[in-house]
Amino acid sequence: MTSERKLVRECKRNNPRFQKLLFEQYAPKMLGVCMRYFQDKNEAQDALMEGFVKVFSNIEKFRSEGSFEGWIRKIMVNTSLNMHRKNLKHYYHVDIDETLERIADERQTYDHLQVEDMLKMIQSLPAGYRLVFNLYEIEGYSHREIGEQLGVSENTSKSQLRKARLKLQQMLNIHNIDL
């Protein structure tokens, strides 16, 4: 993208016009990131807003060495996690069998699997599974990093991931997708 460097430069100078451009350029993809962390769009948009304010106020810290999109994405992920933070300690105490049942009857029929359906599957995971699955599988964090971010042990992260995969596989089976 030709204008990325210019965008960054102008945003470092607080140029409102370019701040808007930066928002317009990255908002859809970043909302796509935030959506995976919350069950509804309003919560995700709250995270997106907070994330963008952080992007603008910290942009002078961005050194042009790394990927700008990656940098923004990281801010969005961290902001989303922060919004979950106050509830985190409950997430990992939920009885697993209970949640498994809750999912099982959410049968819906799809002609064929759409990305939107996959997003819904992730959103329908219990928050604890959802965060770990997103961080590990989609964002590419390690179990150690996840443990640090969420304040849980590496083993908890691993077991949550296993359960998240299991649950997603069950949901995929309903839609005749066998991986």
Binding site: P28, K29, Q45, L119, I122, E137, L172
Partner: peptide
């Protein structure tokens, strides 16, 4: 059981990593 298959992560990542959602108009 196939459920623990690692491919499931890749499958979701492929579809969702660059997934875009249009924000509401008044967000900016």
């Amino acid at each position: 059981m196939k459920s623990t298959n690692k491919n499931i992560g890749q499958f979701f990542k492929d579809s969702l990593y660059n997934y875009e959602v249009k924000p509401d108009g008044d967000l900016w």
